[in-house]
Amino acid sequence: MALILYTLTLEKIHDIALLKLMGAKNSMILGLVLQESFFLGAIAYGIAYFLGDLVFPFFPRRVIVTNDMLIWLALAVVALCIAGSSLGIWKAIRVEPNEVLA
């Protein structure tokens, strides 16, 4: 996850430098990276939920997923998204605006 987000951030490094050149605050840049991370996290959560629904009936023992477990899993995904995006955020915050001119 961290590697994917880091690569996605690297791909947009020029655009991030441009936003900084235009005066964007670090919080805005941070928000953009986190948004992407949460978006990916939500997709992964949805796929996992439906995939689970499809394959659990074929498991040798019954799998019970309670609402509490789903909530805890969602919170875990949020935490993983934040942790996973930290490398991308670190890179994005360090980008100098003059990289646009390069």
């Binding site: 020029h14 655009d15 441009l18 900084k20 050149l21 235009m22 005066g23 964007a24 605050k25 605006p97 646009v100 001119l101």
Partner: peptide
């Protein structure tokens, strides 16, 4: 500086640099 760039300076480049 960042606020000053935001409020007072417009940049245009050789390439349009549009997102």
């Amino acid at each position: 500086i960042r606020r000053y760039r935001r409020e007072h300076i417009g940049f245009i480049f050789q390439k349009s640099n549009l997102i």
